[in-house]
């Protein structure tokens, strides 16, 4: 396996709200994991669980409160100017909100051609741009020459992907990059990502709510809940045998066409929500929604433990310690 391309060590991020009366939101709580070169990793988890925050920290857009991000042996948050340029070329991001990721005053062409000029000097701009647009299933003639607001949500999102692919990054962090395209295009983009990983050894972290797509194509999966990793490991193992009840819930909740499937864990979540139960402040954060919770779950924090090779989980049902 060798050196991991990216390691996240004890990362924590706290936001403060309000100027006068300060309140705090702990978006990430002591997160650690490693990713090897040429892996396709999915980062899934509840809305508000800190996925975007993690992406922004890796991309150096938001500083962490504590902990470190190591890329190819270098601490990302203390790079020299030159290393920073190198980092900005090797690591690319696609942002969650395509509506605000483009400068509204410029045609989308500009974002693409700037990327070519900056990262691939000397290459034929025209050819590069057309090729990359076609790879995300856009018709270059149709979308070039337009301003961001003149494109549909899905078109804009794919232009953001195209822009990030231009520098041929080593590491791509894609935050909800298929949320606005139709199912068939989703499959195409995920297949394309798989090919980039297999053929070019690109490393991709795909943040997605599309659990189904994550299970379908990725090598590794990280499941986040309320700022903590609850399960992490080989996707195939997770697909076959999800250990954490929250992971089970995500798979159970996948919409299916056959109507009458039983969704026990989901029902519990929906009930908790209706009753207005708020998260547990001590112990396992999932306890109040978990049908298997015991006394201990409400009081003690479970720790992430390797249960099987390449399969970690933080849950008292499985923890041996």
């Amino acid at each position: 396996m060798g050196e991991p391309i990216l390691s996240i060590n004890n990362l924590t991020k706290t936001y403060a709200l309000g100027l006068a009366r300060r309140r705090y939101v702990k978006a990430l709580d002591n997160i650690s994991f490693k990713i090897n070169k040429g892996e396709f990793v999915s980062l899934v988890g509840e809305s508000g669980s800190g996925k975007t925050t993690l992406a922004r920290i890796i991309l150096r857009l938001t500083p962490p409160s504590s902990g470190e991000v190591i890329y190819k042996g270098k601490n990302v948050w203390s790079l020299s100017d030159e290393e920073l340029r190198w980092y900005r070329k090797e690591v690319q991001g696609v942002f969650q909100d395509p509506y605000t990721s483009f400068n509204p005053f410029y045609k989308v062409d500009r974002a693409l051609s700037v990327a070519v000029k900056k990262f691939l000097p000397g290459e034929d701009e025209h050819v590069v741009i057309r090729k990359v647009l076609e790879s995300v299933r856009l018709n270059p003639d149709e979308v070039l020459g337009r301003y961001p607001h003149q494109l549909s949500g899905g078109q804009l999102q794919r232009i953001a992907i195209a822009r990030a692919l231009i520098p041929r990054p080593e590491l791509l962090i894609a935050d909800e990059y298929i949320s606005m395209v139709d199912m068939s295009t989703r499959v195409d983009i995920v297949n394309l990502s798989r090919d980039l990983v297999d053929q070019y050894k690109m490393t991709i972290i795909m943040i997605t709510h599309e659990m189904n797509m994550a299970l379908y194509a990725t090598d590794k999966m990280i499941v986040l809940f309320k700022g903590r990793i609850v399960e992490y490991g080989d996707t195939k193992k997770i697909l076959k045998d999800p250990l954490h009840p929250y992971t089970q819930l995500m798979i159970e909740a996948l919409p299916r066409i056959d109507k009458n499937i039983e969704r026990k864990i989901l029902q519990k979540t929906l009930d908790a929500q209706k009753k207005g139960l708020t998260e547990s402040v001590r112990g396992c954060r999932f306890a109040y929604r978990c049908p298997f919770a015991t006394e201990r779950c409400f009081n003690e924090d479970p720790v992430l433990e390797e249960i099987d090779k390449d399969h970690y989980v933080a849950c008292w049902l499985h923890n041996r310690r």
Partner: peptide
Amino acid sequence: FLESIPPVGSRIEEKRIRGIPGNPPD
């Protein structure tokens, strides 16, 4: 369109799902 829905739990190595071939109209 309906055939392009990937079944829950399928894996890419086993069966590669394909989107609808061709491009949307300009």
